Simulated assay, not measured.
Amino acid sequence: MEKEIVLVVDDEKEIRDLVEIYLVNEGYKVLKASDGLEALQISNDNEVDLVILDIMMPKMDGIEVCMRMRKSKNMPIIMLSAKSQDLDKILGLTTGADDYVVKPFNPLELVARVKSQLRRYKRLNVPKKVDQEVIEVDDLMINTKNHQVKVGNKDVKLTPREFEILELLSSNRGVVFSIEKIYESVWKQDFFESDNTVMVHIRKIREKIEENPRRPRFIKTIWGVGYKVEK
């Protein structure tokens, strides 16, 4: 599974390096910036999943950086600050931040907040199914209104979960869905790394709709990424 990318922005190298150690240990990829302008450049050049953003920085402070990022991006932003006044917290949150951590902080608590924000973000941003009553992929026909599936003239009986997965992939043809995205979109629950539920359902769907499940025509595996139905 592709690693989620966290951008750590702080003018203190020791803090950047400390946070990086803890995040990398949890499986995240970390990018680092020492000031606000560098942070904006990195976020524009990379698909960042979450930003940890210090408020007090040279060249451009975290409040201004947050406001600029929010003009085009909606990934979670966690503010860091040595200030603990309520007004400072309110200012940070009202300019677009999702959470606020006061220095000095416990790195384990920060990692927990990163995980929480990413889970919430992914639940709220699962890809939407295109609103179609009938979806056709070659000789595969999916009627979303009556939950009917046919391959050629043959009726295919799918469980409700199997149908939802097939509908999600088929109504977003060409889009690669990770196992995690499929699970959180269909089951509406947090995904756990060791859960193979989606893989089992994909295998069962293939057994029902594919002539040769080992060489599927419809649901393609993109190794190391996920699954898709081709355009």
Results as ranks from 00 to 15, higher is better:
residue 1 M to V: 07
residue 2 E to N: 15
residue 9 V to C: 02
residue 14 E to H: 07
residue 15 I to Y: 12
residue 32 K to V: 04
residue 32 K to S: 14
residue 32 K to M: 15
residue 33 A to F: 02
residue 34 S to K: 15
residue 34 S to H: 09
residue 35 D to T: 01
residue 36 G to R: 02
residue 39 A to C: 05
residue 43 S to M: 05
residue 46 N to E: 08
residue 46 N to P: 13
residue 46 N to I: 00
residue 48 V to Q: 03
residue 56 M to G: 05
residue 59 K to F: 10
residue 66 C to I: 09
residue 67 M to Y: 10
residue 72 S to L: 09
residue 77 I to G: 00
residue 79 M to K: 03
residue 81 S to V: 01
residue 82 A to F: 07
residue 83 K to P: 02
residue 90 I to N: 00
residue 97 A to M: 13
residue 97 A to R: 05
residue 101 V to T: 09
residue 102 V to H: 06
residue 104 P to F: 05
residue 111 V to Q: 09
residue 112 A to F: 04
residue 113 R to Q: 12
residue 114 V to D: 06
residue 115 K to Y: 11
residue 121 Y to A: 09
residue 122 K to I: 08
residue 123 R to A: 12
residue 131 D to V: 11
residue 134 V to S: 04
residue 135 I to R: 00
residue 142 I to H: 01
residue 143 N to K: 13
residue 147 H to P: 00
residue 155 D to I: 04
residue 156 V to R: 02
residue 161 R to T: 13
residue 165 I to L: 14
residue 168 L to Y: 02
residue 172 N to P: 07
residue 173 R to I: 00
residue 181 K to W: 07
residue 184 E to A: 11
residue 191 F to Q: 05
residue 192 F to V: 15
residue 193 E to M: 13
residue 194 S to V: 08
residue 194 S to E: 09
residue 195 D to W: 07
residue 202 I to N: 06
residue 204 K to A: 10
residue 211 E to Y: 06
residue 212 N to T: 03
residue 215 R to T: 08
residue 215 R to S: 10
residue 220 K to P: 00
residue 222 I to E: 11
residue 227 Y to S: 00
residue 230 E to R: 04
